[in-house]
Design a protein around this nucleic acid. Structure first.
Length: 257
DNA sequence: ATGACCGCTGGAAGCGGA
C-alpha cells in the first residue's frame, strides 16, 4: 500500500497538478493539507471520476485536510483532534483503510514566535500527543501523516542561522516531536534514509527551489505494527518544479500489507 | 541580514504561510 502526503496549498487552484500526479504516481492513499476550501467546495466529483473516494474537513480560506483512497471508501473515524471543544480549525481527519488507521494532520505553523500562535501550536501538539498515546497503547495499526510544521533536527533544513527564531525549529517544537516518537512511533522517511537532505518544502520566496534550500516538514509516523511492514519511501520532488506548484512536494511510503 | 513569493479577503493593503 502506497501512502502519500501533500500540502497542496489550495486544492481547487491546484486540482490539475493533483490529478496529473495521481495518474502518474498512483498512490492508494493520499493525505492532503491546506485545502483552503469550505466543505462544499471540495472537488469530490473530479476525484471520484479518477477513481478516488475521499473524506475531508473544509474551512473557509485556511487549513482543511482530506484523505483520498483509490477504488475504496475510507471509513471516517474522526474529523477533529480531541481535547478542545472550542478549536474549530480544520486540521485533523482520521479514517480506517484496509485495517489501518490513517490520520491526515496539519499542525499549526506557530509563527510568530513567541506569541499566541506559538502557544496554540504547542497546545495542539499536546492534544496530538495525548491522542497518539491512546492509539499506541490500544495497539492500533496507525499512521499519523501530514504537515507537522516541525523541522525535527538540524539535518532537516538547509544551513542557515536566519531562521533561528522560527517556530519550525524551536527546541519546544522539536521536543514535542521527539516526545511523540518516544511513545513508539517511527519517523518512516528518516528510517529509510537515515542521513542527508530529505526536503519536502521550499519557500516560494527568493531562490529557495532553484538553490535547493529546503526543509523536511511532512512526516509519516508509524506504529510498530506498520513499521515492520515499511518497504520504501521518498519525495516526489518533480512536483515542486511543475507550473503552478505548491511550496510543498508530495512525500510517500509503501507498506507491505 | 536582506531580499520579497503566493494565496486569502475584498475590492486596498494586510494577514498567514514557513
Amino acid at each position: 500500500m502506497k501512502i502519500a502526503t501533500y500540502n497542496i496549498n489550495n486544492i481547487n487552484k491546484r486540482l490539475a497538478n493533483l490529478l496529473n500526479w495521481l495518474e502518474k504516481e498512483k498512490p492508494e492513499v493520499v493525505c492532503l493539507q491546506e485545502l483552503k476550501t469550505e466543505q462544499q467546495g471540495f472537488p469530490a466529483n473530479a476525484l471520484r471520476s479518477r477513481g478516488y473516494e475521499a473524506v475531508w474537513v473544509g474551512e473557509r480560506s485556511w487549513n482543511g485536510v482530506a484523505i483520498l483512497v483509490r477504488e475504496q471508501m475510507p471509513i471516517l473515524t474522526r474529523s477533529e483532534l480531541p481535547g478542545d471543544d472550542h478549536d474549530y480549525q480544520a486540521r485533523y481527519v482520521e479514517a480506517a483503510v484496509r485495517g489501518v488507521l490513517i490520520a491526515s494532520i496539519y499542525l499549526p505553523n506557530g509563527n510568530p514566535q513567541p506569541g499566541p500562535k506559538f502557544n496554540y501550536k504547542l497546545a495542539w501538539f499536546e492534544r496530538l500527543i495525548g491522542h497518539a498515546n491512546n492509539l499506541i497503547k490500544a495497539g492500533v495499526p496507525a499512521a499519523l501523516v501530514g504537515d507537522y510544521n516541525v523541522v525535527p533536527t538540524p539535518q532537516d533544513i538547509y544551513p542557515t542561522r536566519s531562521l533561528d527564531k522560527n517556530a519550525l525549529v524551536q527546541p519546544a517544537s522539536r521536543e514535542a516531536f521527539q516526545r511523540l516518537l518516544g511513545q513508539g512511533w517511527t519517523d518512516a522517511l528518516r528510517k529509510l534514509h537515515p542521513s542527508g537532505p530529505l526536503w519536502t518544502f521550499w519557500d516560494f520566496k527568493f531562490d529557495r527551489w532553484q538553490a535547493d534550500k529546503g526543509m523536511r516538514l511532512d512526516h509519516f509516523l508509524l506504529s510498530p505494527q506498520l513499521t515492520a511492514l515499511l518497504v520504501d519511501g521518498g519525495v516526489d520532488r518533480w512536483m515542486r518544479g511543475e507550473q503552478n506548484a505548491s511550496d510543498h512536494a508530495p512525500a510517500w511510503i509503501t507498506l507491505n500489507l
